[in-house]
């Protein structure tokens, strides 16, 4: 296949960026999208140009490093996958593909397709944990957890922290991310003692980072590589309301 790639190039956080067009030949359907970028980068280096900077690590959809907007959609076409799991068989010979970084004010572009997602870490530091020191845990089977709660907690815990939900939302809302974290721990008995404190602190940090409120358009769920349900946002709102009104 021969493809035309329009890729966002930006030297650093303080420089303006622009689209640069590249033509890429010899694209095979079994290549992943990131392997396409690898191949392009090899050609760029051979020509003495600087390669396109983008993030990736595990390349199997679990580390959450990759963060491309492909043809306007975070992680590109197709449901339930990260950019690294997108294969070129979903494109046709002659296609023009636009590749951009995640766009959101709390995720500033650092270079080309790399953005700064450290805001997520700060939200987690504000309360995304159960306070238990190594050594003080009770016997694992001493607290039974209904299977359906555990399954639901796992659905939420599957979040890979990539930030596609933010990139897809016109309000740059991080509510799906925060909802997933709050729900995961809030659904388990171990997470109860800090449940309301957690939600209050995480939401406060989320607001401080400049993420917007939920736009109720559910773009976040549509692009989420783990297909995390927006129903968790309802759970977040419920917990938050209770935290603010009843457990101040």
């Amino acid at each position: 296949m021969r493809l035309t790639l329009r890729i966002w190039r930006q030297k650093d956080a303080n420089s303006p960026g622009q689209f640069v067009t590249y033509v890429k030949d010899h694209v095979v359907p079994d290549m992943s999208f990131l392997e396409l970028l690898d191949a392009l980068n090899r050609e760029l280096v051979e020509r003495g140009e600087e390669p396109v900077a983008f993030e990736s690590d595990c390349r199997e959809g679990i580390c959450g490093s990759c963060s491309l907007v492909i043809n306007g959609i975070p992680h590109g076409p197709g449901r339930g996958k990260a950019s690294c799991q997108l294969y070129m068989r979903h494109f046709r010979d002659g296609d023009t593909i636009t590749v951009e970084p995640f766009r959101a004010k709390p995720f500033p572009v650092l270079r080309d397709l790399i953005v700064d997602r450290s805001a997520f870490d700060r939200i987690m530091q504000a309360g995304g944990f159960i306070s238990v020191n190594a050594g003080s845990a009770p016997e694992a089977n001493s607290i039974p957890v209904p299977k359906q709660n555990q399954e639901l907690a796992m659905d939420a815990a599957a979040c890979i922290g990539c930030g596609a939900c933010v990139a897809a939302c016109k309000n740059a809302s991080a509510m799906l991310f925060v909802a997933a974290k709050v729900s995961h721990l809030g659904l388990l008995p171990q997470g109860q003692p800090e449940r309301y404190r957690r939600v209050r602190n995480m939401v406060a940090q989320m607001d401080k980072e400049g993420f917007g409120g939920c736009s109720n358009t559910f773009e976040c769920e549509a692009v989420c590589p783990k297909q995390i349900s927006v129903r968790f946002i309802a759970r977040l709102n419920r917990d938050y309301l209770r935290a603010v009104l009843l457990e101040p």
Binding site: F129, I130, V132, A134, G135, S136, A137, P138, E139, A140, N141, I143, P144, V145, P146, K147, Q150, A153, M154, A157, H184, L185, L188, Q190, G191
Partner: peptide
């Protein structure tokens, strides 16, 4: 065995049976 207890206490959602046990 200690590791496993600790991870459960941290909220790791390990697979469970219908009785709620691991």
């Amino acid at each position: 065995v200690n590791i496993f207890d600790h991870c459960v206490a941290q909220g790791v959602p390990f697979a469970r049976e219908y009785g709620g046990l691991l």
